[in-house]
Each structure stands twice: as structure tokens, then as C-alpha cells.
Design a protein around this nucleic acid. Sequence first.
DNA 1: CTTTGTAATCGTAACGTTACGATTGCATCG
DNA 2: CGATGCAATCGTAACGTTACGATTACAAAG
Lengths: 332, 332
Amino acid sequence: MANLKQIAAELSLSVTTVSRALKDGPEVHPATIARVKEAAKRVNYVPNHHGRALKTGRTLTMTAVYPMETQDHLSDLLKLPLIEGMTLAARQAGYSLSIYSTTPDDDPVESVQRQLQAGSTDGLIITRMVSGDPRVKLLLDRGMPFVAFGRTDLDTAYPYVDIDNEQIAYEATRRLMDKGCRRIALQLLVPGDQASAMRLSGYARAMAEAGIPIDQSLIGHGMFTMESSAAWFDRMLAWPDQPTGLACANELGLLGALHALGRRGLAPGSDIHIVTRDSTRLSRFLPAKIGVHFVDMAAVGRKLVEVLESRIVNPLGPVETVLFKGEFDPGE
Amino acid sequence: MANLKQIAAELSLSVTTVSRALKDGPEVHPATIARVKEAAKRVNYVPNHHGRALKTGRTLTMTAVYPMETQDHLSDLLKLPLIEGMTLAARQAGYSLSIYSTTPDDDPVESVQRQLQAGSTDGLIITRMVSGDPRVKLLLDRGMPFVAFGRTDLDTAYPYVDIDNEQIAYEATRRLMDKGCRRIALQLLVPGDQASAMRLSGYARAMAEAGIPIDQSLIGHGMFTMESSAAWFDRMLAWPDQPTGLACANELGLLGALHALGRRGLAPGSDIHIVTRDSTRLSRFLPAKIGVHFVDMAAVGRKLVEVLESRIVNPLGPVETVLFKGEFDPGE
DNA sequence: CTTTGTAATCGTAACGTTACGATTGCATCG
DNA sequence: CGATGCAATCGTAACGTTACGATTACAAAG
């Protein structure tokens, strides 16, 4: 409620002087600065966000576009440490972080466009990149600072932070082969998005190296939930030529697959081997031998904010791109 | 980039008329309204958030204060569906949701105060209520719309949405007793906060009814992580009078406890029984017989936003309070 | 031909802030 | 004693929006 005008009136100063005093302007008498700061503290003055934003054009707000698969099912657990990393880093950098949820019904380009216009944000964190993602061009054209979580196949340079999904899937597949697996099943999330495409590509590379032809029926798409993962894997386990190795999309996929195995009295480690990506370290606490690829998503979240901040502060600076590698833990 | 002034200049109208036309003001000629809307659409006009907020005092922003235990460990998984429920509901109600992370180092009252002053939000969602929570009085005094996730022991009325933790813990304890357990261990999260106090109270009620004295050494505080849960439970399993029942704080506590059991070659269901609160349905996919109390946190998140919106729209309206009950599933 | 009424549009001020140029007071210097 | 320089402070305008009262044009009524 307290504003510059009130402080100015109380101290018989002009609004200008008060404003300058609060930023330690060199033109203001030190004694006046002290008086102003004392008064500001006393009345609990905090600069009005909108007044400042309107004048300066800077809002000190970052917006993360948060894609949801459905409204009913639990999202990929990696989003929790990601959000925590982002919110904390944003706050420490002096920004507030706004979360903009989108459902599959929303047009992703339009979602971005709306954020652009309203001038309500200094920068955007976009996720769920797709091939030739049109949002990148749009944002570059408008000069809106942004950073992508994930990459896309464009010839223009743009800032991104990504996980090396290709390497993760390659390594996962190789590990399974080391255990003797040749029929290796692969779980993917969103059909057509970049992260899934990279996983598929890493898988294909490992298979090609081993000279094993790819069996499309071993590749599962849309494995968002424990239920869908369990049902899909259960179906495969009924085949005469059931898979002997499985690379899970994430923790939820793993839990679903373990559930399907358990119902048949099977456990991973002897006949069937399982590898998963895990960003919560949850799988390390399961009573099963599982190879785990850990990626520190809180660090990814912090990095996203860091890169975005540098874009905001210096829009013409060098375009940063960061690739996080995972750490593989074979699980005994 | 496009603003009212530009549209007005282009159509040779005043800014006022354009502004009114966009809201279908009855004083504007229908033909003019059509012209204005066409032009607005053509130049992709979206009202500037800060200009509007400054003038009207409404920001169309809600802020959720998000408490974090530590910067390193994964938070309670219930926060993921909670955030998803909140962000989606906020967006559908026309608000954007800002997440304000706080660490244990932050003074919770000061965190709230800062949000208040800056005028950057229309309402607050506060969590992690403590006994006699000073934030409630502060917010009521200032007339800032808010809703609490959780209750506190104050004689003033204020809006809240809560989970019936007392009932959850009572029922959990009773279920364990039904299985024959008398030495029942209880996991709690934050020492001193309201949710943990309620859990403890429900536990105590069930124990009193059964005439079993409470053994303080069976009550564990600060069980935020799988690691701490595992270590704590492991210590107890080494006792000659080890517990025969365990009520876990949440999914992470459960995984930690199962891990400790598994290392000793034990499984829940015969000698030792386990019950947990679960809001991700994760425990249903574990190969263990566990009693589960499910609470739909996405619904809680949506409700929080709904209650907050009604406070914002009608600050003098009736004070809503909502209590979510869980559903118990005995796990076979 | 002036008055009254009404539909449509306009102009000004204000929200709280900051940028920038103008102004004041006072000591110093030729 | 008037000119100059400097430190300190002030005033105005602007960001984009909306609220409110004023103004215009024109038709109908006296």
C-alpha cells in the first residue's frame, strides 16, 4: 500500500528524490538517502511491480510452459525436481516464475503467442520440443528471450538445455546387450517429440552396431502412466518370443513394467533385464536389480533459469547450449 | 507490441472508444465495434498486463507459496499432482499461477509480506500451516485474499482446504491393529507443523482406544527422504522389540521402509504390516501388500484455486472450508 | 429558430514508477 | 560584485490502461 508518493510527502521530498535515494543514486545527499531508507523500511515499502514494469519494460517474471498429457494422470516424475530447481533458481535470481499449463488440446504456438503479447513476462522456458518447432522461429523473430528444454532440428542457433537422450538410450540398449539380451523392448513417451525421437535414434544405433534388426512391435509409444506401461509389457510377456530386455521411459514406466512382471511371478535380473531413466532415485529403493540412468533434473532446472536470465540481461550475447549427460549405475 | 493507441490511430478513433469497443461497451456504435475488433485481431492485440493491473488493481495472478525442505532432496511426491491441479485450474479461471519457493531458512511471515506489498498478486495460496500461524492474521488484516492448504488453531474464521490427516492416521493405525499389530511405528514429516500434529493426534486416538501406551521411540520426525526413512526403519528393525506395524508419511517414506525391510529379507504382509498415504497411486504398483490411503491431490489443487478465486471475486462472501477425506484400500 | 434529448465519440486524469532535463542554493573565483 | 561550478533537489512526461465527465452532431420537439 505504501508508495513513493507517500514517503515523499512524509519527508517533504519529491517523488524523484525518493526514487533515486532508494537506488543509492549518487546525486542524492547521503543523509537524505538514510532518511528515505529509514522511512521506507518503517512503512514496509516494496516497489509496485506493475508501475515499475510499465515504465521499465522489465517484469522480473519468467514463464515456464508446462505441458500436461492428460488432466487425470500423474505426470512424469522428473517434473517435480525440474520445477523445484527452476522456482528456487528463479527466486534467487530475483525473478518470479509463472507456470503456464497446457493440455494436448492447446495449440502450442498459440500458447506461446499469447504470452508474448501481453508483455507480462521477460522470458519463456519452452519444453516438449518437436521437429522443426515453429515456436523457435516465432520467439526469435519477436526478440523474446527464451530457452528450450530440449532441442529441435533447425539450422538457426537458439539457446537450449537438454538431456542427452540419444546417449541414454544407446547406453541403455548396450547395457542390456551386455547382459545377453537381443530382443530389447523400448518405451517412449510422446510420439513425435524430440526427446522420444532421440531415444529411438540411440536405440537404433546400438541395435545397428550389434547387427540386430529392429522389431517395431517391441517399441511402445505413449507410455505415460504406470497402467499403460503395465498393460503394454504384460501383452509382450504373453508372446512366445517375449522380450528379454526392456528400456523404460521413466520411473512410472518402470513401476508399471515391474508390476506386470510381478504378476507373472517374474523378477528382473535373470531372464529379463530392465534399465530405466530415473531422476528421483526412486528405482534405487526398489527390491529389484535394475540398471539406472540418473539425470539431475534440479540442476537442469537451475541451468534453464540461468541461461534464460543471461538471455534477458544480454539478448545479443552468445547463444548458450547445454547438454546434460546422465550417470549410469548398473545396479549390481 | 500492439497497443490501444496504435489501433486508435489507425482507425482515427480515440483510445477511449477503442478500449470500450473491445469490451462491447453499449455506448459504441456496433459498426465501430466490428471495425475495432477486426483491427485488434489483425495486429494481434492483447491487453498489456501491467497497464491494466496498474489501473484496475487486479492482476489476474495467483501466487502459491511453495515450501521446500532442502535444496538437494526430492520433495513429497504429492506436490506434483497438487501443482498440476492448481496450474490447470488457475489457467482455466483466467489467472496465471506464480510459484514462490521458500527454503527453511526463509521467514515464512516475511515471505508472505513481500508478496503482499508489491501488489503483484490478487491472492495467495499458503501451505505448511503451523500452530497459531501468524500469516493468517496478517493476511486477514491487510485484506489480501488467500486460502490455506491446511488448518491452524485460531479462533478467527479463514478459508482453507485440507486433508483429514487426523482421520488418515487414525484409520491407518486401526487397520494395523486389525492385523494384530500393537507396536506401531509412525512416520511424520515436518516437526511442529499442523499436518504432522494431526497425524500424531489420530495415531494417539487410535492407540488410546486400544489401550496401548504410546512409545515415543516409535515416532519418527523429519522423514522427508527415502534415505532417512530407510535408515530410521532399519534401526528399529534391529531392536529386540521391533515394531510390527508401520504407518508411512508418504510414498517416499514407504519406499525407504520397504528398502530397509528388503535388505533384511523381509516383506510386509505377515510379520510386519505397512500402511501409507499415497497420492500418486505408486504403491499400488509395488510388489508388496500395503494398505493405502489415497487422496486426490489434483482435486485438492483445483479446489484451492476455486476457493481463492471466490475470495478474490467476493472478498466479503462466506468463508469456505473444505476437508478432503481419503479412500482406504487395504491392499488385499 | 432555439431548446431538448440522445447516440456516439472524445479528452483528461489517474494508477506507481523511472528518465531526463530544469531549477535552486551556495560557495568559489576572477 | 557578477559570473561560474557543483551538489542537491524538483517537475514533467511517459509506459498502457480504464473511469468519468465533456463534447459533438443531429434529429425531434417546442
